[in-house]
Design a protein around this nucleic acid. Sequence first.
DNA 1: TACGCTGTGTGCGTTACCGCACACAGCCGC
DNA 2: GCGGCTGTGTGCGGTAACGCACACAGCGTA
Lengths: 243, 243
Amino acid sequence: MLDVPKPQQNHLLAALPAQSLERLLPYLELIPLPLGEVLYESGDILHHVYFPTDSIVSLLYVMEDGASAEISVVGNEGLIGIAVFMGGESTPSRAIVQSAGHAYRLPCQRLKDEFNRHGEMLQLMLRYTQALITQMAQTAVCNRHHSIDQQLCRWLLLSLDRLQDNQLTMTQELIANMLGVRREGVTDAAGKLQRLGVIEYSRGHITVLDRAALEQLSCECYAVVKKETDRLLPSEPLPPTDE
Amino acid sequence: MLDVPKPQQNHLLAALPAQSLERLLPYLELIPLPLGEVLYESGDILHHVYFPTDSIVSLLYVMEDGASAEISVVGNEGLIGIAVFMGGESTPSRAIVQSAGHAYRLPCQRLKDEFNRHGEMLQLMLRYTQALITQMAQTAVCNRHHSIDQQLCRWLLLSLDRLQDNQLTMTQELIANMLGVRREGVTDAAGKLQRLGVIEYSRGHITVLDRAALEQLSCECYAVVKKETDRLLPSEPLPPTDE
DNA sequence: TACGCTGTGTGCGTTACCGCACACAGCCGC
DNA sequence: GCGGCTGTGTGCGGTAACGCACACAGCGTA
């Protein structure tokens, strides 16, 4: 955990060519993101995009009856607000902070300007978007075919990948909302994992003890998304300042 | 049903500025798409993109065990092969013809060239992609929360919107593969609709008798996607030659 | 006419998840 | 210490969808 996260902790910012990043730097504002903060609501016109450094944000679809489901997760590998450059200005989803931390915020116009220079920024954003699409699609399939047990493993792995340590602050209630299942279903699944010694659970704090087991127990969906993301966004040439 | 579909029957082609379309026209090739044809397999490098005129293509995710689920549908409102301009060149999904018809085929490079002119084509493609993302996301939520009955209604409406008449050629077996459920589940749901007089079923031919009822019985997912698609891609200034 | 193939209907028992109710445990503030 | 709140564990009946088996119907072909 860094005291002051650097922009380069976000992989997209880190992957930008030096000139692009320099143009953006004056407008990048470090923002703390507390748990549960809503970055945008369904249909909101976006005014900023967010590049997480050490936070995790969920894209959540909420139904008329209040039921919800997470369709993708964004951490320091991505950005919140693709609708800005995709042209739609808004989306029917909610972006909510799932793990507290920080993000660099950039006014829409600055992103658009850089995007419209048609340089590497455009290529990078589109590739990231494709990775995001893959994650959404796989989530759809996973929702259809896999058990809560498997999905919990997948979800834990997704979160773990976006965190600095192996502990996450998360109640079963919140996980249930993300997965779109009952809280008791999560209790069951988490209980099994705890009995297997894979995780340790205590009032909103989960510690992952055996990541390999988690991957074993997860459905294929996690691996598919990870592989495709790595293909689309190979680990960038990180500057040495990066943690 | 037209004898020879025109490029403008595809809404994206129709929405292109005249110069763009003119540049593409010499390379647009009309291709018949028989039922079940696979336009690309998961991981394939794409060589063409397809603009359907009177066909419907499903984007299908197939799991390791063979189970599948449709994550979105593409008809004359869209194109197959967004990975070409998104930068990934391939996707982990299969594109399979769900309703026979035709499409205009364009070599990748021609699309990229036009896309890289950074004109309206780019804007249009990205907006369409955002609409597609909405459909995928809503599919994910729908898979989680809604009954087969509701999903069948949604699916029929999606297909209906992309057809010229109110009849579709489709066995229950195929619909089951699309929805990722058992064939018997579709039989049940379709039986109910038939008893209600909403559809008529006969060995692979479905006739929709009461579209309004279908919308009534469907979950909100259909409407959400339709509304968002209309917002992102308002009905284009169709040339008078369009059917 | 008989046969076979494909598509549809139906009836089981089984399972996964839901909805609800409630018990209890950790933790904070008074 | 006490009470109250939040988070977790558990049990129960209900239900939607599953897997499997099989009957039957439409339709083309021998």
